[in-house]
């Protein structure tokens, strides 16, 4: 137990650590990309990464390893803002990608125009997952606000998916009851029915499926289909509401990072590959609605026909929505404030 021995142990440990750090540098003929994404895309990107790796190897002879990081969309954006070196971000909503531009200046202003379809290669929507046989008879949004119904959704302040949930409910109510005041009243009643507010989509799914809490789960369509097909056809079923929101998860190359790391070419190709038939096919397999017509047609039976509205036509864009609804002191906070 001599000091020298302790010091040597410390030395070895330190060199190990820095060795690990050095290993992150890019050797020739091999590339790494970091894709910072949101919660429910894990399985999709796992398969897509393998496909892209193969494609890129065939095309250029370079082996590309893609690392994944998943979490709540806001949390992931925050990590990139604070310096997590993501080559590409594939987040739940454009607002979070834009936050990276606004707060850290890592992206060009026109990022959303650089790729087709609003930079959203696949879409999804919000549906309900209910218990088998639908014992509470939940058919449409209005049923969720009825007394005695327990609704599970993540927290819109931390989860991108939950913001889509909230806005879909809001727009439905405005169409149905006429104005924003009625919509606010409806959404307030709906959220009074929420017993657990997890921080992310996956947390809510766990609460609903594993803890068996709640009568309805507001979920991404892809999550709902995944839960249904892989976890319990005998336990739950999907209810598609009369109308819902077109959720467009955005993807973007992080300019400052790829320029520094010299990965722009492969990062751009990675995102473009999402739009290719192969990429679209994998997206459809993981229950995302593909953009490409022929792939969409092929899988038409997977996805219920439902009237979809977009955030821009209903709410005039994310920035406005965020300020009015989700910022501190916004409408969502008021829902939880006791008082008149």
């Amino acid at each position: 137990m001599s000091a020298a021995r302790w010091l040597s142990i410390a030395g070895v440990a330190c060199s190990l650590a820095f060795g690990a750090g050095a290993a992150a540098a890019q050797p020739k003929g091999e590339l790494t990309l970091l894709n910072v994404s949101y919660d429910p895309t894990r399985e999709f990107y796992q398969e897509f990464n393998a496909a892209f790796g193969k494609y890129w190897k065939e095309k250029t002879g370079v082996t590309v390893t893609i690392r994944q990081s998943h979490g709540g969309s806001g949390k992931q954006a925050r990590a990139v803002i604070d310096g997590l070196e993501a080559d590409v971000v594939t987040l739940a909503l454009a607002y979070d990608v834009d936050a990276i531009r606004v707060r850290a200046g890592l992206l060009a202003t026109d990022w959303q125009k650089r790729l087709p379809d609003n930079s959203a290669p696949y879409t999804s929507t919000i549906v309900f997952l209910v218990r088998k046989g639908n014992p509470k008879g939940i058919k449409d949004w209005e049923d969720l606000a009825k007394p005695g119904i327990a609704v599970i959704t993540p927290n819109p302040k931390t989860s991108g998916g939950a913001r889509w949930n909230y806005l879909a409910a809001w727009a439905f109510a405005r169409h149905k009851y006429g104005d924003d005041d009625q919509a606010k009243d409806f959404v307030t009643r709906l959220f009074k029915n929420v017993p657990v507010l997890d921080s992310g989509a996956r947390g809510s799914l766990t609460t609903f499926m594993q803890r068996e809490i709640g009568d309805a789960l507001l979920a991404w369509e892809n999550e709902a289909l995944l839960a249904l097909n892989e976890l319990g056809k005998d336990k739950v079923e999907i209810v598609t509401p009369s109308e819902s929101i077109l959720a467009e998860p955005s993807v973007a190359v992080v300019d400052k990072v790829v320029d520094k790391r010299g990965t722009r070419e492969v990062a751009t190709a990675y995102l473009e590959y999402l739009y290719s038939p192969t990429g679209q096919e994998i997206a459809a397999k993981h229950y995302y609605r593909p953009r490409l017509k022929e792939v969409a047609d092929k899988h038409a039976d997977r996805f219920q026909k439902v009237r979809l509205f977009t955030i821009d036509e209903e709410f005039g864009g994310w920035e406005k929505v965020q300020k009015e609804h989700f910022d501190d002191g916004g409408i969502f906070d008021k829902i939880y404030q006791p008082g008149p």
Binding site: G72, G74, K75, A77, R78, I81, A99, R103, N155, K157, T158, V194, P195, V196, L197, D198, S199, F326, D327, D328, D333, Y336, Q337, P338
Partner: peptide, 22 residues
């Protein structure tokens, strides 16, 4: 369960504020 006003602890609020870029 992390319900605002009901089951949110203060350290969680710190994390939530961070995730809202606040």
């Amino acid at each position: 369960g992390n319900m605002p006003m009901r089951t949110e602890i203060t350290p969680l609020l710190i994390v939530i504020k961070l995730e809202q870029y606040d």
